[in-house]
Amino acid sequence: MSALLQLTGVTAFYGAIQALKGVDLVVNKGEIVTLIGSNGAGKSTLMMTICGNPRARNGQIVYDGEDITRLPTFEIMRRGLAQSPEGRRIFPRMSVHENLLMGAYGRPPAEASQDMEQVFTLFPRLKERMAQRGGTLSGGEQQMLAIGRALMSRPRLLLLDEPSLGLAPLVVKLIFGAIRELNRTTGLTVLLVEQNAFQALRLAHRGYVLVNGAITMAGPGAELLARPEIRAAYLEGAH
């Protein structure tokens, strides 16, 4: 397996505060990799740093053999990364249809409508809600919309930031099922940031644990799930 995304010694700062303290991470082609950690561990920062906002201060981010560490965000995203950002961040006053089209920004309309059909196959609910304003959707539907919007750019690497946040267990199951389905049928590579460690580790091929801006553990999802220290720190009462 070859690496699609490779981070070496990446650090990032918010002003004087160091949020990432030299992160090494690899995502191979066709893998689902999850990054778990508690609040404030730097998970979302890592996600944003991959996208170039904030820029990594030290270290290197290589995507598909190309160094993207210093590229502006829109250039990075153009290379086949797509992000469903933390808190979903759909456009509340725009319709579901328009939201999805924004994901295909700059791509030919014919391809966009093709991709939209695929998104609708994955999330039939979105098709029903097509003319509705994004802000009127339920939390789960908004998350589907955020993922669907990210998929509209036909990405090779999908970055998902806490898709389970604030959702009912049944909806989480549905969304994680869709991610697994996507990965299985299209071979889409996924980097999943989660606080819901149990679900995330069960879904992912491999996992990383981020504590205070540094990776403390790594390994196959099932293996991490079995470790007592992980059970103690992230899984107690989480099932």
């Binding site: 965000t73 990075i76 990364l81 950002p85 456009f91 725009m94 924004m102 920004y105 700059g106």
Partner: peptide, 24 residues
């Protein structure tokens, strides 16, 4: 046009626009 839609998206959420690869 996509450009007009991008303006509206920018009004709604600039960070989301960046995440979608729009040149803000």
């Amino acid at each position: 046009l996509p450009l007009g839609r991008a303006w509206e998206a920018l009004r709604e959420d600039e960070i989301a626009c960046r995440a979608l690869g729009i040149n803000v």
